[in-house]
């Protein structure tokens, strides 16, 4: 790398700015890591609690790189057929019948050509002319066998299809994996990836997010909301509110024309459905608790 320190730093702040324009408020450390990821061409494993914006990273990245986002949602029982490729059997059959009807010879090569290949996310991601962002969401939900297969794809960026041969990547995708930690990932996969841990945002960052996403919100309300949410996270809740919940709540309050959280406690209690998602949590945050929190938020 012959870039001077100056241009390097500029790249980081440029990326940070692009992400911000794509409505994602990124720390400098995250932008720096993302830049490193694109340079080293290694996948990035992002971990953190639910609702801290892991998936959003990939979306924002694809927007700021102006490239397609390919998403593979993992689930238990996800197999190669739905992740990599599948032959279009109906189409093949039809083609055979047509050839027969016209008394033309059918060749196997034709039946197993790219024409009949259905590309699933992984294959699609490596066969695009320009690097896309490949988001492999909730990898911990897929089973171990798939994880092993994925590891192979991510290290060689090639996929072999018995009937067609090996397909090598025309461009290396920017891979982002997310995990919620429901299952222990294998060390091999962890070592293959760069790692980033996303924590809940602090007050300033969350305020910036709210104001970026909901530009019409009034200043006092927004800081009250964020202050409250921050205190909610400190309570002993079963499910801590994520950034999504903050935004939902703020949007709901705007819809109801609330200007100040202390104005109508009953109404605010009702809007908490946006934030507290289990019965225990609802019971824990009583009107008194809420009023106290609002008072503290000023």
């Amino acid at each position: 790398m012959s870039e001077t320190p100056h241009t390097e730093n500029k790249l980081v702040s440029n990326l940070q700015r692009d992400l911000f324009e794509a409505e994602y408020v990124a720390d400098q450390s995250l932008s720096s890591t993302l830049l490193l990821m694109t340079k080293l061409q290694r996948p990035l494993l992002v971990e953190g609690d639910a609702g801290v914006g892991k998936t959003e990273i990939a979306k924002a990245l694809s927007k700021s790189f102006d490239c397609p986002l390919i998403r593979l949602q993992c689930y238990e029982g996800l197999d190669v057929n739905s992740a990599v490729y599948e032959w279009n059997y109906q189409h093949q059959l039809l083609s055979i019948k047509i050839q027969e009807a016209r008394d033309l010879p059918t060749s196997e090569k034709h039946i197993f050509s790219e024409e009949f290949l259905l590309k699933r996310p992984l294959l699609e991601a490596i066969s695009l002319p320009r690097s896309p962002v490949l988001l492999i969401d909730e990898i911990d939900r897929a089973d171990e066998a798939f994880e092993a297969f994925l590891l192979e794809v991510l290290s060689d960026f090639q996929i072999s299809i018995p009937e067609l041969g090996t397909i090598t990547a025309s461009s290396i995708p920017h891979v982002i994996l997310t995990s919620n930690g429901t299952r222990e990932l294998s060390d091999a996969l962890r070592r293959r990836c760069l790692y980033y841990y996303v924590d809940y945002p602090d007050f300033d960052k969350e305020l910036r997010i709210v104001r970026k996403r909901l530009p019409d919100i009034n200043r006092q309300l927004s800081s009250q909301i964020v202050e409250c949410i921050q205190s909610f996270r400190k309570l002993d809740l079963r499910k801590k509110p994520g950034i999504g919940e903050t935004l939902d709540w703020a949007a709901a309050l705007i819809q109801l024309n609330v200007e100040n959280l202390s104005s109508d406690p009953e109404l605010i209690m009702d809007t908490l459905v946006c934030v507290l998602k289990t019965r225990d949590d609802r019971n824990l945050v009583t009107k008194d608790v809420l009023e106290q929190l609002v008072m503290k938020a000023g």
Partner: peptide, 13 residues
């Protein structure tokens, strides 16, 4: 700072 972040991403798993 950047060295810190870079190595952190690489070495932590």
């Amino acid at each position: 700072k950047r060295l810190h972040w870079g190595l952190r991403s690489l070495l932590c798993s």
